[in-house]
């Protein structure tokens, strides 16, 4: 996919987000690039410190990016003033992990959804009420739920309310940050189905951020694997799953617990901890835990190399190891 391609809704290039901390600057996101096609779900997967949440927020400018660009429908969002950005805010929405803290407990559900409609002046009076009812129905809730408060709902229902609020402004892009991680397993699957319905029926484009590779592989069309702020591997989710070319992706796949006791898998247990982003390793950031690391890995930051259609990997040894 090229960014000039009309099928690309969002193209992020060289995204860097640096935070100033007491111990010095931290690059939470260090040169991340990806593209999201219209109507597609892109999954960003990574462990803690991978920068996945920061990347999502920087794209929406909920945190100000340090450098890079995010071209949304042909316009670089990072080059816009706050005022110029406003119309784009309506077209891009975010869904948060914790459905308990992300809904105002003092507002009725109808007003939580209505507030988004009012902010962008999308409907008034009876039309507004009808719209709220439509949105509740769309996420599997009923019209009478509009009069209730968030604390009267279960976690799964609250996440549906969060989704209805995001949908209220008819966005083209939704960034969902771990939207099912806080939910019980039986409820998770309901929300994953809802997301798929929204993709199919509304043609929504989504960036789905998660630590759970199983969920990402299932739900997403494309996958970006992050580690310590950098992209290790990206590509169509089936290709990444079937033929992972980065040692980190392979380790993630090998360690994700599979609910089948008869599966005998290659045990790739990574040694050690994720290094501190304050002091990332030189060269390849993964090399301190990589079972295949050599001296050369410490010297250069591995460039992304194409290994298949839309499939790239940042590892200098991938060809000799996994071809």
């Amino acid at each position: 996919m090229r960014s000039s391609d009309n099928n690309v809704l969002l193209s992020v290039r060289g995204l860097v987000k640096q935070f100033a901390t007491k111990s010095g600057p931290v690059k939470a996101v260090d040169g991340v690039s990806f593209e999201v096609g219209r109507g597609q779900i892109l999954g960003i997967v990574g462990e803690s410190g991978s920068g996945k949440t920061t990347a999502g927020r920087a794209v929406l400018r909920l945190v100000e990016p340090t450098s890079g660009e995010a071209v949304f429908d042909g316009v670089d969002l990072f080059g816009l003033s706050e005022k110029e950005l406003r119309p784009y805010r309506r077209r891009m929405q975010i869904i948060f992990q914790d459905p308990y803290s992300s809904l105002n407990p003092r507002m009725r559900v109808g007003d939580i959804i209505g507030e988004a409609i009012d902010t962008h002046g999308l409907a008034k009076g009876a039309a507004r009420r009808v719209r709220i009812e439509e949105l509740l129905a769309r996420v599997g809730l009923s019209a009478e739920h509009a009069r209730r408060y968030p604390n009267e709902f279960s976690g799964g229902q609250r996440q549906r309310i969060g989704i209805a609020r995001a949908l209220a402004v008819e966005p083209e892009l939704i960034i969902a940050d771990e939207p099912v991680s806080a939910l019980d397993v039986s409820v998770q699957s309901q929300v994953l189905n809802l997301i798929q319905e929204l993709q199919r029926e509304l043609g929504l484009t989504m960036v789905f951020i998660s630590h759970d590779l199983t969920v990402v592989e299932y739900l997403c069309d494309e996958i970006v694997v992050l580690y310590l702020g950098r992209v290790m591997e990206k590509g169509p989710s089936r290709a990444v799953h079937a033929a992972p070319r980065h040692p980190y992706t392979r380790a993630l796949l090998a360690t994700a617990p599979i609910p089948d006791p008869t599966v005998k898998r290659e045990r790739v247990i990574l040694q050690g901890d994720i290094p501190s982003p304050l002091d990332p390793p030189s060269g390849c950031v993964f090399r301190t835990r990589c079972p295949h690391a050599t001296e050369a890995c410490a010297k250069v930051v591995p460039p992304a190399e194409e290994v298949g259609p839309g499939h790239s990997v940042a590892c200098i040894r991938h060809a000799e190891l996994f071809s």
């Binding site: 039986s186 409820v187 699957s189 994953l192 798929q196 199983t214 089936r238 799953h241």
Partner: peptide
């Protein structure tokens, strides 16, 4: 049985053409 059906399984939930099958959730909540 319902819990096991809720967990995505790429082998089970992807058709050969790559299209996804919807999950089979347990309705309602705990």
């Amino acid at each position: 049985k319902g819990l096991l059906a809720c967990i995505p399984d790429p082998k089970r939930d992807r058709a050969t053409d790559g299209s996804r099958r919807m999950l089979d959730p347990i309705p309602g909540s705990v």
